[in-house]
Design a protein around this nucleic acid. Structure first.
Lengths: 221, 221
DNA sequence: ATATGACCAAAATCGAATAATTGGTCAAAA
DNA sequence: TTTTGACCAATTATTCGATTTTGGTCATAT
């Protein structure tokens, strides 16, 4: 594994355990098995390292989501897509924390910086929802804005509910996301419509995003 | 207005503004226009006052919800019921904070006490969901547990999303709850079924709960 | 009977001085 | 050239006594 990647990996591990605040450059260096100076050979400072870490995790998320969608042969509906998206985000503690604004992980760090910088909206943008409406895949008696908001709201609830209802009282994750997907399927999508392209076009979009991350990586070194 | 009620009112106002921690007994007395001793004539201490405040707000919530359901002549579906519930909770800052575990309002106080004491599960219990399934009102291909969880999860998302997406970027509340209700209607409920009793039986249940609060009030003084 | 607010002990807060840690650098080592 | 880790200024954490605030009481006033 490349050295910068090893460093980001270490930074990620420590950030999930201790949060941005309590993770020091020294810790990262030690965890990655390199000297502190080595970090500064790649990034300008802690802020740049964290930015890179988030990009790194976003890229990991996109790759994971891509893998999931390809593996799921029934992934030909928006509901199924949404379900894989939820599962992928939930697996990535850092992006999850970023999305739910988990104070434990974000700490004061993001608050001191421009907090807007550390918000991720993730897929299901207004534009794509709008496009899916036009394609007859989503019900169109609700505005694209509201549907997008609904997707965000359910994701937030799903990702943060375990701090309100302890996991031992919660149903298994699979049945929860399954139920969300079932509700979305019959509650937000439109029967019929041309579904054959959903999977392919989503993967294409993911490829585009992943390509962008890789291009940025190359430019920065 | 009764004096204990005036005190609870003052306590509520201050708690919403400053949280449990920063609200002192002196402040409450001053805000209520009574002496500090007067509070201790009614309650044993701060903890008891806060407990009473929460009961008080829960009762207000129930009364408000009752009023809403009666006023809404189309309130003959679970979706419509859920919608009024969300609106009612959202209007009550304190219960809302309790539900979402808003650290800003709860402060260290509830953490020092038994935190379980300060969690409210609110309507849509497993039992009532199960009953509605038996009555053919909710789809039964999803377990009552999961549907209950879904209701909790959406409520949590709805009540806490404004700290993730700023209100200026959010759709109006009415259209949001409207969309949630629409999604629940076609995504979780079953077409047909005997709806005529939904409204009446819910009001009956609320009356029972409200009666319990009033009985407890009478016993305590 | 009822209500008050001065009063008290305990807890929280402040402030300044001290100690420890942190992000970042760079001369020296590899 | 590439990498290191001792080093530094600056920020942050800690200590601890002084001060203030807080929850709670009760002799007194109404």
């Amino acid at each position: 594994m490349e050295r910068p990647t090893r460093i980001l990996d270490a930074a990620g591990r420590l950030t999930i355990r201790f949060g941005f605040d309590k993770t020091t450059m020294d810790d990262v260096a030690k965890e990655a098995g390199v000297s502190k100076g080595a970090i500064y050979l790649v990034w300008q400072g802690k802020e740049e390292l964290i930015d890179a870490l988030i990009e790194f995790e976003m890229k990991k998320l996109m790759l994971d989501l891509r893998r999931r969608i390809i593996a799921d042969e029934n992934c030909d509906s928006i509901a199924a897509l949404y379900r894989q998206t939820l599962l992928a985000i939930q697996q990535n503690s850092l992006i999850s924390a970023l999305y739910t604004r988990d104070g434990k992980i974000l700490g004061d760090f993001v608050h001191r910086q421009n907090p807007e910088r550390y918000t991720r909206r993730l897929l299901m943008s207004k534009e794509s929802v709008s496009a899916m409406q036009s394609a007859g895949l989503l019900r169109d008696d609700l505005s694209a804005d509201v549907i997008t908001y609904l997707f965000s709201l359910m994701a937030l609830g799903f990702l943060s509910i375990n701090s309100v209802i302890p996991v031992e009282n919660a149903p298994p994750i699979d049945s929860t996301v399954g139920a969300i997907a079932a509700m979305v399927e019959s509650g937000l999508t439109k029967p019929g419509g041309n579904r054959t392209l959903i999977k392919d076009s989503t993967i294409q979009m993911l490829d585009l995003l992943i390509e962008q991350y890789e291009k940025r990586d190359r430019n920065e070194h």
